[in-house]
């Protein structure tokens, strides 16, 4: 598998760990650290999967998700939402906005890899 994965996450340590496990699986990983940058990056390149943290500076993950899913040009990109809140309310918000997967922190590495593989393959 050589999927291109974009990680939007403001915690550098998590970006590093996600990059490590996904690279190990053969993915091509790039990262941004705030909501605004995600949208900028999507204008120039199109990842196979987007890993999106909810609590992002400048624009929250949900705002970004909403923009992506309502943009006909971007809505096809599979999005996996990451959140540290882990509340049922957030999960529902994410699903309503059209998230393709939802993972709460702390996550199992294997779980994240499996989901991303599935999203990239679909």
């Amino acid at each position: 598998m050589s999927a291109r994965v974009l990680i939007a996450e403001d915690e550098p340590n998590l970006v590093e760990s996600l990059s490590f496990i996904l690279s190990r699986e053969g993915c091509e990983v790039s990262a941004v650290f705030d909501g605004e940058s995600v949208l900028e990056r999507l204008r120039t390149e199109r990842p196979d999967v987007l890993v999106l943290d909810v609590m992002l500076p400048r624009r929250t993950g949900f705002e970004v998700l909403k923009l992506i899913k309502t943009d006909p040009g971007l809505s096809a990109i599979p999005v996996m939402v990451l959140t540290a809140k882990g509340q049922e309310r957030d999960r529902r918000t994410a699903e309503d906005l059209g998230a393709d997967a939802f993972v709460t922190k702390p996550f199992s590495n294997q779980d994240v890899v499996d989901r991303i593989k599935r999203l990239a393959g679909g």
């Binding site: 915690e11 540290a84 809140k85 709460t104 702390p106 996550f107 199992s108």
Partner: peptide
């Protein structure tokens, strides 16, 4: 709490 925990678990 979950944010640092996520890093710890992942690594």
């Amino acid at each position: 709490v979950r944010t640092p925990m996520a890093s710890i678990r992942s690594f």
